[in-house]
Amino acid sequence: MRGGGLLPVAGLLGVLAAGQWLLPAYHHANLVRIMVLALYATGYNIAFGYTGLLSLGHALFFAAGLYGASFAATLAGLPPGAALAAGTAAGGLAAAAVGVLALRTAGVAFMIVTLMFAQAGWLAILALGPWTRGDEGIVLPDAARALAGFDLSDDAVRYPLALALFAAGLLACLWLVRSRAGRVMVAMRENEERARMLGYDPFRVKLAALAISGTYAGAAGAAYALMFGYAGASLASVQYSILPLLWVLVGGAGTVAGPFVGCLLMFYLIDYASSLTSATLLLVGLALLVLVLFAPRGILGTLREKGVRWLP
């Protein structure tokens, strides 16, 4: 299995690259969003799917990237490249800071502690109204969205950039989980006591996993702000902690490409359901119920269990 998974991942990225020329305008724009959000979900999967950390606080890390990049661009006047880096770092730092405290707990207590930190962050965004405009949010000026002469508000520019970010994230994730560090992470998920006896420090491993995961979230948040020109408190609400969990579970926790598949599927499920009926949520809910009955480990997870071993 070593080195496996690279081929299908490369195939997926190749298909996405072809999308730049082949997709109709609407789906082309959708894919930009999906790739940015899938980057977020891929990071979530590193903490949840591989290391077994069920966090409900990732919205905080996403928001750290979102506002980190926004304020870097507007208040500090940094160019978009630096703003992207600042947002990415903000996400990683936020995750590390939360991790230092929250990783004293495990299981459901970890879930609730991260949830509460994220709720405090969301409230803080509301309380900082003079800068964030709370729930209403802020629009990034066009000048903040021009990266080295490229206009990030242009779909033709955004798509390759989103693809580059997503590809980097996906390949890094593939490399990580195939590495020794990745196997230690999985060991934490499967049996923490055993890993400890083998000489690994669970706290450090989990903290590293959470920080990496937060870095992904920060990068996705920063890209979201710079590409779509908007930062608002609704993107920091608990919904944005539950969504990556849902995408990961639908696509397959602990699979490299699962988060992308889940994100893509949920996006088009909602989109398609809303074109069929005004009772959109009913259809989406039923689809989820059916899906989970037939694929309890997520799409890729269940396929892999059924013998399609080559899936990443």
């Binding site: 849902l246 579970l249 809910g285 989820l288 989970v292």
Partner: peptide, 12 residues
């Protein structure tokens, strides 16, 4: 996942 699905159904 199932209870999220249930949530959507009940809300709708």
């Amino acid at each position: 996942v199932a209870t999220i699905g249930l949530l959507y159904v009940l809300q709708q």
